[in-house]
Design a protein around this nucleic acid. Sequence first.
RNA 1: GUGGGCGUCGCCUAGUGGUCUAAGGCGCCAGGUUGUGGCCCUGGAGAUCGAGGGUUCGAAUCCCUCCGUCCACCCCA
Length: 419
Amino acid sequence: MTKRYKAPRGTTDVLPEDQPYWDRVWEASARICGLFGYRRIETPVFEDASLFSRGVGEVTDIVQKEMYVFEDRGGQQLALRPEGTAPVCRAYLEHGMHNLPQPVRLWYWCPIFRYDRPQAGRYRQHTQLGCEAIGEADASVDAEVIELLFRLYEDLGLQGLTLHLNSIGDGECRPRYLEALRGYYADKLEQVCNDCKERYQRNPLRLLDCKQERCQPVIAAAPPFTDHLCDACADHFSRLRAYLEEVEIEYVVNPRLVRGLDYYTRAVFEFQPQAEGAQSTVGAGGRYDGLIEQLGGRPTPGTGFATGIERIILNLKRQEVAVDAPVRPRVFVAFQTAEARSQAFRLASGLRREGIAAVVAAGERSLKAQMRHADSLGADYAAIIGKRELEHGTATLRRLSDGHQETLPLADVATIMTH
RNA sequence: GUGGGCGUCGCCUAGUGGUCUAAGGCGCCAGGUUGUGGCCCUGGAGAUCGAGGGUUCGAAUCCCUCCGUCCACCCCA
């Protein structure tokens, strides 16, 4: 008894019938990224593991419990890419992109790996589209990446997305805010859930985004970060808002919005659909002014986003957005006796060389079976080479939509269809 | 990592202790006379009832473990 193989947990096969969705999202992504002057970059699927522990943050969940880490035969500690920004920053440094006009605008589309517990819209391997603008601190660039992502969703026809916006400060004001937040929570730890007691120690910002009922009153009265921003961060945030209004992108300021990666500074944002569910965020990003320096470069500001392709497609399906039909052949070549086989084979080859999609019948099936096959493939025409056609060097071309057919010289089959 | 629901041919489903050597629909294959599709009709292939163990005279049906999947949490795209 042999084992029946299945795709590993949390992974999926993207079958032919799903490809039109992927094509649609890919096409729109490439077009809109290009429209904004972003150029595509591809980085390896695996990197030095420490790139992520250093870049994303040693104590983040991604690094602590979700990374696929392995040692290669040379003893290198490598990790399957758990997020896209750190590798792009590594490439920026490695290729001296600081010598290019700043900011450098890059986009990527790549698989991401996280050892998570799978559920709908959450996979161990998923695909992210991301944009990074590196080398400019001005809020106009934050607005630019947000607008790019917004235009992508708009182009795809996604409805009901809400843009949530927040600022989580920088090295100057964040420590002060965290102190204020801890001070506020210090005498309320009895009232909050166990997770929050943990967060109080490890990651106080996360206190703000707890979903437990009992914690809500405490959160509601907590001091919002937006009141504690230093002048520079407050200025950045208000400029960002102004830019967004300039290009008529609606948003809500959500003081409870925080992000799970350590490198974020100042502006952070998320696009959330109407649909219920924990994995609702479809795209998110923010500024990461300390990341390049953290990776060993000169202090260099950056901002960007990532959006999950599987989640986009999930929403496209929920909203029944129309996509192109899967590919189908223009002509199905059927033949009747074994003698006609090579003739049919040659006809199909000739059609393809004229750019006409052609599929030729295989095996030894009845004409009826071949015609059924032609129909189920959705071919426009069936070209039939039977005994009579074989004798005369002709083919019968049948239009499947209405059954109209005529017999014509083999050489004319291609020309009649290119007109 | 935590808690809960679910798991029957490729897909959807019926069956909840003996009538199940498991039924139906879709799909697949073949045929409906002599060269032809879509509708219709007929037939066929296809399931060790997620896996392993246990209870019982007897289990797809009950119990345990594992795996997978879905939902919530954690976290994230």
